[in-house]
Design a protein around this nucleic acid. Structure first.
Length: 420
RNA sequence: GUGAGUGUAGCUCAAUUGGUAGAGCGCUUGGUUGUGGUCCAAGUCGUUGGGGGUUCAAGUCCCCUCACUCACCCCA
């Protein structure tokens, strides 16, 4: 036997019936996001590498070592998108969406690619459902975006999620704090690990979310970002929290929460779920007030989030799964000497009347066909035998009740629709 | 990129100190020439991930390699 070709490492197939659940989750997202005035954007999977270098940041791990980058036939450097905020921002600038009036509200659903070692909840191709609110600097926008996110998760029957909230301040706050943090850490260089020492130069704030016990101990006495916020940043953050409280959204302020993408500013957040192992963040997001300017657009503030759809599905409540399991269609079975073409024609007429059905054309026994119908979870079987067809009728078998009646096609459809 | 664990049938797993590769589920057929679930019977299913080595003999021991899993890291 020839060697089997397998899917690429870290990339997986999604098969029925699981794909039906994915579709159901995405339907909920579309419905809820639409109810907040968001429209769908679809950007290319491939972008100019420069977009991510400038947008996500050269010093980030994503850009530094996790991108699928290659040169095309003309020598251009292209990259499989590792995230979608930068592409959406690029599209916003490229198409002059600001001229339609701000804010612009967009959402997307689709695959992202990062070259990492796969493990639970982490794939090299993974799907994100994200939303971006572009063009409103106010805290009420932060709160509304979070509200929409929470409502979405509630609609999936999620409970027991923790919303972690923090602010990384505006540029000025961050510059001040950065200086203070480096000044504090510099004398303790020897306590820091290799990564943290490198970050002391490139991105000191990232050191805050270290898991190293020694570093954590050291950081306990470190200056707080909170103490270095500009009055404006502080007011903004307080207003976000207040709005969430008014709307009944529970959250926890997590001062150590900083995010790995350079474009974040002011409000940042994360939602973690239980039972997911080490990769438990199902949502991450925050403000990116400077990104659109960095990409050559006007100075337009924005905020957004990205949901890890694979993780979302991995932790999806059973109740939602049950409610959205696909319904097995009716089976139409030929019995006796019935021409396949005759059965096809009959099936088409029934489908035209709004019946979902699968045909048993295999030329196998009625017994086998019924077995398949039963295993599929279907309740109804329509038997089209010589006798029935001659009389212009069908036998409708109710597999649950074990009952069978002969009746005309319209009556059969009515009975199925009335009882399923 | 680093570390650890695991690879046996489509799936879940057995196989004693190295000694004939198995079970359940699934799938196909029959018991019912046009009737499912339960039951009974038969059939189908393997280069034991791959390569090399040790041995009379390797699923089992050793080396290499690949894949998967988990953790670090990273992040969704």
């Amino acid at each position: 036997m020839a060697e089997r070709v397998r899917s690429v490492k870290g990339m997986r197939d999604l098969l029925p019936p699981e794909t039906a659940i994915w579709a159901a989750v995405e339907d909920v997202a579309r419905r809820i996001f639409a109810s907040y005035g968001y429209g769908e954007v679809r950007t290319p999977i491939l972008e100019d590498t420069e977009l991510f270098v400038r947008g996500v940041g050269e010093a980030t791990d994503i850009v530094g070592k996790e991108m699928y980058t290659f040169t095309d036939r003309k020598g251009r450097s292209l990259t499989l998108r590792p995230e979608s905020t930068a592409p959406v921002a690029r599209a916003f600038v490229q198409h002059g969406l600001a001229d339609q009036g701000l804010p612009v509200k967009l959402y997307y659903v689709g695959p992202q690619f990062r070259y990492e070692r796969p493990q639970r909840g982490r794939y090299r191709q993974f799907n994100q459902i994200g939303a971006e609110l572009i063009g409103d600097p106010g805290p009420a926008s932060d709160a509304e975006l979070l509200l929409m996110l929470v409502r979405f998760l509630e609609a999936l029957d999620y409970t027991g999620l923790t919303v972690l909230l923090n602010t990384v301040g505006d540029d000025e706050s961050r510059a001040r704090y950065r200086e203070a943090l480096v000044a504090f850490l510099e004398p303790h260089r020897e306590v820091l690990g290799e990564d943290s020492r490198r970050r002391l130069e490139t991105n000191p704030l990232r050191i805050l979310d270290t898991k190293s016990p020694a570093e954590r101990e050291l950081l306990a006495d470190a200056p707080r970002l909170e103490g270095h916020l500009t009055a404006q940043s502080r007011t903004h953050f307080e207003a976000v929290g207040q709005a969430l409280e008014v709307c009944g959204v529970r959250f926890r302020v997590e001062p150590r929460l900083v995010r790995g993408l350079d474009y974040y500013s002011r409000t940042v957040f994360e939602i973690v779920a239980e039972g997911l192992g080490a990769q438990d963040a199902i949502v991450g997001g925050g403000r990116y007030d400077g990104l659109i300017g960095d990409l050559g657009g006007a100075d337009v503030p924005a905020i957004g989030f990205a949901i890890g759809e694979d993780r979302l599905l991995a932790a999806l409540p059973e109740s939602f799964r049950r409610a959205h399991a696909p319904v097995a269609p009716v089976h139409l079975v030929a019995a006796g000497d019935v021409e396949p073409s005759q059965l096809l024609e009959l099936a088409e007429r029934l489908r035209a009347e709004g019946l979902d059905l699968v045909t048993e054309l295999g030329g196998r026994s009625v017994k086998a066909a019924l077995k398949r119908a039963d295993k599929s979870g279907s309740r109804w079987v329509l038997l089209a035998g010589e006798d029935e067809l001659a009389a212009g009728e069908l036998s409708l078998r109710d597999l649950d009740a074990g009952e069978q009646v002969r009746l005309g096609p319209d009556a059969a459809i009515a009975k199925i629709k009335g009882q399923s």
